[in-house]
Design a protein around this nucleic acid. Structure first.
Length: 357
DNA sequence: CACGTAACGGTTGAT
DNA sequence: CTATCAACCGTTACG
């Protein structure tokens, strides 16, 4: 609740229990890793627990995003009131209906789309638990009752209708040209486990949120800003059907920037390309020093070009990774680039190398 | 020593 | 409005 400043970890780093590390630090973790610096060194240099470094890098490799997951909130249940209602209706209309038939109908009637349709077993459970006795139509609480027409709402309300966008795209641009994301795997396939994840889609904007960076070094005074970072702010809008949403959403979300961003955004929550570009922005100058990094402006103004360029820089750095990695097993000695990288970081205001270890 | 991961105590936000 | 609950967080400790 309060400023909950930080606690200090064993490495001397500051952190706020329960809260994500500042974006800028996450960024650096990934960047350093790409420079070929070993996780253990990154951990020490940034004073972030190795567990955290490991986690962030793992996530990055997998999803292409450096952003923390969405915190809090409830899962978008597939068995929304609307769905239950529909199931009940189907069942009432045809008591002998099979769960799989119900499932098909939910899809056919557009009550659900293939991404949020309940499984047959879920439907069975619903039939059993919630619609056991049809004679008692009202299973809603007495107090509220089923809202007049909750029906339509849910699906549409939920931004979570899942990225159909991604599925169709699948391959799409998930792998930007130089993306380090090795495998290029599906960063997305990981799917949309939850609304949370999806929210990240929107959250992408977070990258450009100045406040995020503001908190960079010293943790923004207001954690809330952070929150906004994580989830970006997303408008409750959405009237659209889940189906084409992705693109629409982005438009909705970023009326101004959208056009450009949208191209990056839709593919996946953690649009690799997008995030990449994003952080590529600060890549050169890094985030710290500036009042705000240009990210926001940059992206907004000339997202494409800006990103491309920067990303190029980063990638150029990439090679080191291999070189470094391969022959650079030895613990202590860092290669030039690494030194530079680190030093630049320190310059930002990080602790000190205290090259002793 | 490096690093993946479970446990832990914490925060958040939708219900 | 408050309480629950389930998601995520980073650190720590273990293997």
């Amino acid at each position: 609740m309060k400023q909950t400043y930080g606690e200090v970890n064993q490495l001397g780093g500051v952190f706020v229990n329960g809260r994500p590390l500042p974006n800028a630090i996450r960024l650096r973790i990934v960047e350093l890793a790409q420079l070929g610096i070993r996780p253990c060194d990154i951990s020490r240099q940034l004073r972030v627990s190795h567990g955290c470094v490991s986690k962030i890098l793992a996530r990055y490799n997998e999803t292409g995003s450096i952003l923390p997951g969405a915190i809090g909130g409830s899962k978008p249940r597939v068995t929304t009131p609307n769905v239950v209602k529909s199931i009940r209706e189907y069942k009432q209309a045809d008591p002998g209906i099979f769960a799989w038939e119900i499932r098909d109908r939910l899809l056919a009637d557009g009550v659900c789309d293939k991404y949020n349709v309940p499984s047959v077993s879920s439907i069975s459970r619903i039939l059993r638990n919630k619609i056991g006795n049809l004679s008692q139509p009202n299973q809603y609480e007495p107090g509220k009752q089923a809202p007049p027409q909750p029906s339509l709402s849910y699906n549409h309300l939920y931004p979570y209708s899942y990225p159909n966008a991604m599925s169709p795209s699948g391959t799409k641009m998930s792998n930007p040209p130089g993306v380090p994301v090795t495998g290029g795997h599906v960063s997305l396939s990981r799917g949309w486990p939850s609304a949370h994840t999806v929210s990240n889609i929107l959250g992408i904007r977070a990258f450009m949120d100045p406040t995020a960076i503001a908190g960079a070094e010293g943790y923004a005074p207001k954690m809330e800003d952070w929150g906004s970072v994580n989830r970006a702010t997303f408008p409750p809008t959405h009237g659209v059907n889940g189906i084409d949403k992705s693109s629409i959403d982005s438009d909705i979300k970023y009326p101004q920037t959208s056009s450009t961003l949208s191209s990056y955004v839709p593919p996946c929550a953690y649009s690799p390309s997008n995030q990449y570009g994003v952080y590529s922005g600060p890549a050169g100058s890094y985030v710290g020093p500036g009042p705000h990094w240009q990210a926001q402006g940059a992206t907004l103004s000339h997202p494409g070009s800006g990103m491309a360029i920067h990303s190029g820089d980063i990638h150029s750095a990439m090679p080191f990774k291999h070189a470094a990695r391969e022959d650079r097993k030895p613990a202590s000695p860092l290669i030039k680039q690494q030194h530079e990288a680190l030093s630049s970081i320190h310059g930002l205001s990080l602790p000190q190398p205290t090259s002793s270890s």
